[in-house]
């Protein structure tokens, strides 16, 4: 088709209606009832689902972070040190492990984790931040 004016070019934009809707239906393939068969219902549900997915990406990160903090706190408690003291002690020793590594060590490598707490405790005593027990 040849467009002689720009107006006609705008009017005929986009792919065919069938294929445009099919993209949406593909996303709704696992829904049941009218929410996968009627386009007007489907488009609403799919938009909502995409919003949830967007929010969920951040929520998942927050959840994992909270879980790792819980595990590190639990590990610290076993060795009688506060999590913030532990972090401070490690930073002063230039042991810059992130939450993931520390949580994994707490769960899977308890002996390595104990060694880290010992290092942190000793460092705090050496720097006269904490009294030795």
């Amino acid at each position: 088709m040849v467009f002689t004016t720009a107006i006609n070019f705008i009017r005929s934009r986009g792919p065919d209606e069938f294929w445009r809707k099919r993209k949406i239906f593909r996303l709704a393939a696992h829904y049941i009832g009218r929410r996968r068969n009627c386009y007007s219902v489907t488009i609403k549900i799919v938009h909502r689902a995409l919003v949830y997915a967007t929010k969920g990406r951040q929520l998942r990160k927050d959840d994992i972070r909270n879980l790792r903090d819980t595990r590190i706190t639990a590990g610290c408690e076993q060795h009688d040190i506060q999590p913030h003291e532990f972090k401070e002690g490690l930073t002063r020793c230039n042991i810059l492990l992130n939450r993931k590594s520390l949580a994994d060590l707490a769960a899977w490598e308890p002996h390595s984790f104990k060694a880290l707490t010992d290092i942190a405790k000793q460092r705090l005593v050496d720097d006269e931040i904490k009294q030795p027990k």
């Binding site: 819980t70 595990r71 706190t73 639990a74 076993q78 707490a106 308890p110 984790f113």
Partner: peptide, 9 residues
């Protein structure tokens, strides 16, 4: 079980 390092919800 929050006091265990293997905790998971």
């Amino acid at each position: 079980g929050l006091y265990k390092p293997i905790y998971h919800p």
